[in-house]
Nucleic acid binder design. Structure first.
Length: 902
RNA sequence: GCGAACGUAGCUCAGUGGUAGAGCGUUGCUUUCACACAGCAAAGGCCACAGGUUCAAUCCCUGUCGUUCGCACCA
C-alpha cells in the first residue's frame, strides 16, 4: 500500500466492483487515522489476540492468509461490538531460517560466516532484516489485517530480550535450566543441536547388514549382529543380548572382537534387546543411538564419539576419519566383505530422523548443551487444559496436547548459531564457574575474576516465542497493557506448532504470570490444492495469496477462506469457489448501486440509525426483510462467538444474496417506482437502514468493499468510518423491532405464490414475454387480505398480464379454464390453456403426489406408533400432526387439479 | 504398536437425535430498466458397510472396510 492520497472516496460507481482501486486507498486511510489502535486503559471490555509472529524471512502464504483473515475478522467484529480490541503484531527472528538465508547470500560471494566472524555476520543479518524484514508486514496489509501497528514487536527487540534473560535467569536459579553433556539430535548441515520436535522421522528404504563379531578364541565363528548403520561399529563398546535368550546365555560376560578395529568389547545382557528381531544380538553404540545410550548408562559403558560437528568421521574413525557417513558406510561394508565378516544384506525399511529445517539426516551426537527441565512446567500446563481453563477447538487436539506433555523430554534450548538471543551465561576463565545473569556481569560470582567469557550459543527461537503473550505487552515491566490484555482471548494457529509454541506459551505463562496466556485455541487446518495435495514448491502447486488478491481482490480471497474454514480441517482451495465469492462482492456492489439510486432523493433522518418508519406505511416486504436481518445478525453473532466462521459467512451470503437481493430488492420495486409518497418514503427508510446494517455486519469479513460503500450511505456517522461508528450493532435492537414476525410470515405466503407461478412458467417453458392470466382463489379472509395487499408484487415478480383475486372459496366459479394449481397455502389458478402440454403437466403432478404420499405414509406410521406418541416430546408429536394435515391438503389440491386437467 | 480425524448430490464440502443443505458443475428458459461475475426454473443422495442404544439414527455406541494425519519403535 503505497498510496497516501489521503482521500478515501472515489466518485466513480461502475457496475463492476474494482477492488484494486478501493484497496489501494483504503488501507492507508485506515492506518493514517489509527483506527486499529487499542487503549492501554479503557472503560470498554478488553479483547486481545496475539498474532503468531511470522518469520522475518517469510512471505505471506495462503496458510497465513487463512489464519490472518480469521484473526482479523474476529478482531474487527469485537472492535465494532464495543470492545477495546487489540490485535498485537510482530515478527520472529527465526534463527535458523534467517541465518540460512544470509549464509546463502554470502555463499554467492564465496564467503562463509566463519570467515566473516560473529560480529560482522550478525551485522549482516541485521542489514538483511532491515531491508527485507517488512515484506510480510506489507503483505499483511494487502489482506487487510487490522493490527495495532504502533505496538509492533520483533523478537530481538530490547524489551523481548530483557524478558528472555529474566526468564532464563529465573529458571536457572530454580534449577529448571541446566547445562549438561547429553546425546542430542544434531544437524550436520546446520552444525547445531536440535530439539526433539525439530526432528522429523521419515520412512527410508535401507539395508540391514548382518555382521559377524568373531569370538576371541575362535575367529571363524562369532556373534552375528544386524545393523542398518555398519559405520557406527567404530563406536561400538559392547554387544547386547536378552538375558533370557538361551542361545546366547553362555556368552554373557565374555568378549568378542570388534571388526576393523582390533578392539575387544564385552557381551552384556539387557532386556532392551528383542529376541525375535534380526539375530537377537545388538551392537551398542552409546554415542550415536538413543537406545544404546540408555543401555550404555545402565551398564556403565564408555562412550566413543566417532563424528565431527559437520557429520564427518573423526579420529576415532581410524582409517575412515574425514569421510562423510554415507561414504564411510560404503567403505566399511566393502572392508567387512573383504574380511568375510558380512554375512547377509537384506532390504529393510526403517524410519530415520531428519532435520526438519534443512532436510539433512539428523545424527544423535554427544555434546554439551543447555536444557530446560520440563516435568514441573508441564504439570500445571496439563492441568489448565484438563480442567477446561484453556479449550482447544476442535477438541480432539486436547488429547494430542496432553499426550505430548505426559511423555515430555527435557528441552534442548542451545543452538550453535549466531543469530538469536545469546545465552546469558558467562564462564570464569580462572575458576570455570558459570555466572548466569540478566546483565553482563563484571566479575565472576565465585572468584571475582574479571576474565569472563560469554556462551557462544544462542537460544532456540521458540524460547523467545514461548514468552510472546506477555513479553509483547511489556513484561517484565508491570505495564498497563499487560494488566489490561493478559490473559489474551483466542489463539489462532496451525496444529503443526502445538508442541513448538502453544504448549510452551502455556507453561511459561503459568510460570511467570501465574495465569494462562489465552483461553481458547483455535486450530486451523492446512490449505491444500484442488486435488488435495500439500502445496509445495517442488510440485509447483503453491498458491500465492498476493497474486490472488491482485487478481480477485482481498475481500474475495478473505470470504473464500472464511466461508470454507472448519476448525482443524484441511481446506481444498478451488478457483471456481473463489470466482463465486468474487461474484458475491460484485453482487454486494450492485445491490448497493441499485439501493443508492433508489435513495437518491432520500433525506437522511436526524436520528440516524435509530430512525423508525411509520409502520402503517410499510409493506409486508419491509417487515419481512428486517425480520430476516434480525435472524441473520443473531446467527452471525452466535457463530462468531463460537468461532464458527464458515457458518457466519454462509448465513451472511445466503441472507444478502437470496433474501435481500433476490427478494427484497425485487419486491420493493413497485413501491419505490410507485406513486404513493408516504409508502415510498417508509420503504426507503427501511432500505437505507437495512443496507447500513448489512454493510456493518459484513465488514469484519470483507472490510475493503464495505468501508468503500459505507462512505456513500445516506445513513452513517459523521466520520464516515465503519469501524468507529455505531458500535454494538447487536445490542442496539431498537431498529430491529420493525421486523415483526407475524407480518414477515405474511410475505412468506406471497413468496410461495410467486414461486408457484414461476414454477409453472419454467416447467412449461413459457417465455417471459408471454403474459399469463391468473386467478388467485383465497381459502379464507386472512389470505384474501394478504393477496390483495400484495397483488402488485405478484404481478411484477411473476410477470403476469392479469392477476385477479377471487372471492373466498370461489375456485370453481372462475370463468377461465384452470389448468394448474400449485400453491398449497392458497389456491392459485393459472390460465394457461394452449401453451401447456397437458399430458406433461399431469405427469409432473402425479410424480409430486407420489412423493407426498410417501412422506405422508411415513408420518402416519410414526403417529400410529403408540410408543412414539407416548415418548416423543409433545411438540414433536404436535408438529407431526400438523405436517400430516398439510400433506393431506396438498395431496387433495393436486388431485383436484388432476381432475381439472383431464 | 498407540492415538486422532474423515467417508453426505458429478466435484468441493457444511450440517443435525425428529420429512437431507450450500457453492460449483449439469439441463432448460431469459440479455426485463443494480448486477450475464446476472435472473428464473429443474434434475441429482439407501448421508461407506454391519450391528447396537432409542418411540425415532445420517447424527450417539461398537465393529468392519477405505482415506488421511500425529506419536512411539524399528539393532
Amino acid at each position: 500500500m503505497t498510496s497516501t492520497s489521503g482521500s478515501k472516496k472515489n466518485d466513480e460507481l461502475g457496475d463492476r466492483y474494482n477492488p484494486k482501486d478501493v484497496e489501494k486507498r483504503m488501507y492507508s486511510w485506515w492506518s493514517e487515522r489509527r483506527f486499529f489502535s487499542a487503549q492501554d486503559k479503557s472503560t470498554k471490555p478488553p479483547f486481545c489476540i496475539i498474532l503468531p509472529p511470522p518469520n522475518v524471512t517469510g512471505q505471506l502464504h495462503i496458510g497465513h492468509a487463512l489464519n490472518h483473515t480469521l484473526q482479523d475478522a474476529l478482531t474487527r467484529w469485537k472492535r465494532m461490538s464495543g470492545f477495546n480490541a487489540l490485535w498485537l503484531p510482530g515478527t520472529d527472528h527465526a534463527g535458523i531460517a534467517t541465518q540460512g538465508v544470509v549464509e546463502r547470500e554470502l555463499a554467492k560471494e564465496n564467503k562463509t560466516r566463519r570467515e566473516l566472524g560473529r560480529e560482522k555476520f550478525v551485522d549482516r543479518v541485521w542489514e538483511w532484516k532491515k531491508k527485507y524484514g517488512d515484506r510480510i508486514v506489507e503483505q499483511m496489509k494487502f489482506i487487510g489485517d487490522s493490527c495495532d501497528w504502533d505496538r509492533f514487536v520483533f523478537t530481538l527487540d530490547e524489551g523481548v530480550s530483557k524478558a528472555v534473560r529474566r526468564v532464563f535467569v529465573q529458571l536457572y536459579k530454580k534449577g529448571l535450566i541446566y547445562k549438561g553433556q547429553r546425546l542430542v539430535n544434531w544437524s550436520p548441515k546446520l552444525e547445531s543441536a536440535l530439539s526433539d520436535i525439530e526432528v522429523e522421522h521419515k520412512e527410508i528404504k535401507g539395508t540391514l547388514y548382518h555382521i559377524r563379531y568373531p569370538f576371541t578364541d575362535n575367529s571363524t565363528d562369532g556373534l552375528v549382529v544386524a545393523t542398518t548403520r555398519p559405520e557406527t561399529l567404530l563406536g561400538d563398546v559392547a554387544v547386547a543380548v536378552h538375558p533370557d535368550d538361551e542361545r546366547y546365555a553362555k556368552y554373557i560376560g565374555k568378549s568378542v572382537h570388534l571388526p576393523l578395529t582390533g578392539r575387544m568389547i564385552p557381551v552384556v545382557a539387557d532386556t532392551y534387546v528383542d529376541k525375535e528381531f534380526g539375530s537377537g544380538v545388538v551392537k551398542i553404540t552409546p554415542a550415536h543411538d538413543f537406545n544404546d545410550y540408555a543401555v550404555g548408562m545402565r551398564h556403565k559403558l564408555p562412550m566413543i564419539n566417532i563424528l565431527n560437528r559437520d557429520g564427518t568421521l573423526n579420529e576415532s574413525g581410524g582409517v575412515y576419519a574425514g569421510l562423510k557417513v554415507q561414504e564411510a558406510r560404503k567403505r566399511v561394508v566393502e572392508d567387512l566383505k573383504a574380511q568375510n565378516l558380512l554375512l547377509k544384506e537384506e532390504a529393510h525399511t526403517h524410519s530415520v530422523g531428519h532435520d526438519s529445517r534443512t532436510g539433512a539426516v539428523a545424527e544423535p551426537l554427544l555434546s554439551e548443551q543447555w536444557f530446560v527441565k520440563m516435568e514441573s512446567l508441564a504439570r500445571p500446563a496439563k492441568a489448565v487444559v484438563e480442567n477446561g481453563t484453556i479449550t482447544f477447538e476442535p477438541e480432539a487436539w486436547t488429547k494430542t496436547y496432553l499426550h505430548w506433555l505426559n511423555n515430555i523430554q527435557d528441552w534442548c534450548i542451545s543452538r550453535q548459531l549466531w543469530w538469536g538471543h545469546r545465552i546469558p551465561a558467562w564462564t570464569c576463565e580462572v575458576c570455570a564457574h558459570v555466572t548466569v545473569a540478566e546483565e553482563t556481569p563484571s566479575q565472576c560470582e565465585k572468584c571475582q575474576s574479571a576474565n569472563l567469557k560469554q556462551e557462544d550459543d544462542v537460544l532456540d527461537t521458540w524460547f523467545s516465542s514461548a514468552l510472546w503473550p506477555f513479553s509483547t505487552l511489556g513484561w517484565p515491566n508491570e505495564t498497563e497493557a499487560l494488566k489490561t490484555f493478559y490473559p489474551t482471548d483466542v489463539l489462532i494457529t496451525g496444529h503443526d506448532i502445538i508442541f513448538f509454541w502453544v504448549a510452551r506459551m502455556i507453561m511459561m505463562g503459568l510460570e511467570f504470570r501465574g495465569d494462562v496466556p489465552f483461553r481458547k485455541v483455535l486450530i486451523t487446518g492446512l490449505i491444500r490444492d484442488a486435488e488435495g495435495r500439500k502445496m509445495s514448491k517442488s510440485l509447483g502447486n503453491v498458491i500465492d495469496p498476493v497474486e490472488l488478491i491482485d487478481e480477485f481482490g482481498a475481500d474475495s480471497v478473505r470470504f473464500t477462506l472464511l466461508a470454507q474454514v472448519a476448525a482443524g480441517k484441511d481446506l481444498k482451495f478451488s478457483f471456481p469457489r473463489l470466482e463465486g465469492y468474487r461474484n458475491f462482492m460484485n453482487k454486494i456492489w450492485n445491490a448497493t448501486r441499485f439501493s443508492l439510486q433508489v435513495l437518491s432523493e432520500f433525506a437522511p433522518p436526524a436520528d440516524g440509525v435509530k430512525a423508525l418508519p411509520k409502520f402503517e406505511n410499510l409493506c409486508d416486504a419491509d417487515f419481512w426483510i428486517v425480520h430476516k436481518l434480525g435472524e441473520c445478525e443473531a446467527a452471525v453473532q452466535q457463530h462468531l462467538e463460537s468461532l464458527h466462521f464458515s457458518e457466519a459467512a454462509n448465513a451472511l451470503y445466503d441472507f444478502v444474496w437470496h433474501e435481500f437481493c433476490d427478494w427484497y430488492l425485487e419486491l420493493i420495486k413497485p413501491v419505490v417506482y410507485g406513486d404513493k409518497p408516504d409508502e415510498k418514503a417508509a420503504t426507503q427508510l427501511v432500505l437505507a437502514q437495512t443496507l447500513n446494517r448489512i454493510i456493518r455486519l459484513l465488514h469484519p469479513f470483507v472490510p475493503f468493499i464495505t468501508e468503500e460503500i459505507y462512505g456513500r450511505l445516506p445513513i452513517r456517522g459523521a466520520e464516515a468510518c465503519i469501524i468507529d461508528e455505531y458500535p454494538n450493532q447487536r445490542s442496539d435492537q431498537t431498529w430491529l423491532q420493525v421486523g415483526r414476525k407475524e407480518r414477515a410470515i405474511e410475505l412468506d405466503l406471497v413468496v410461495e405464490v410467486i414461486s408457484a407461478i414461476r414454477n409453472i412458467r419454467g416447467e412449461n417453458r413459457i417465455k417471459p414475454g408471454e403474459e399469463l392470466k391468473v386467478r388467485l382463489a383465497p381459502k379464507d379472509e386472512g389470505s384474501q387480505k394478504i393477496l390483495q395487499a400484495n397483488r402488485a408484487y405478484v404481478t411484477k415478480l411473476a410477470k403476469l398480464g392479469d392477476c385477479q383475486i377471487n372471492e373466498i372459496g370461489s375456485l370453481t366459479k372462475c370463468a377461465l379454464t384452470p389448468v394448474a394449481i400449485h400453491s398449497f397455502r392458497i389456491d392459485v389458478i393459472v390460465y394457461l390453456e394452449g401453451v401447456v402440454d397437458l399430458g406433461e403437466e399431469r405427469k409432473r403432478i402425479e410424480k409430486t403426489i407420489e412423493k407426498l404420499q410417501k412422506d405422508k405414509a411415513a408420518i402416519e406410521g410414526r403417529l400410529a406408533n403408540e410408543n412414539f406418541v407416548k415418548n416423543a416430546p409433545a411438540e414433536v408429536v404436535a408438529e407431526g400432526r400438523v405436517q400430516l394435515g398439510e400433506l393431506s391438503n396438498k395431496i387433495q389440491t393436486l388431485q383436484d387439479s388432476l381432475v381439472r386437467l383431464s
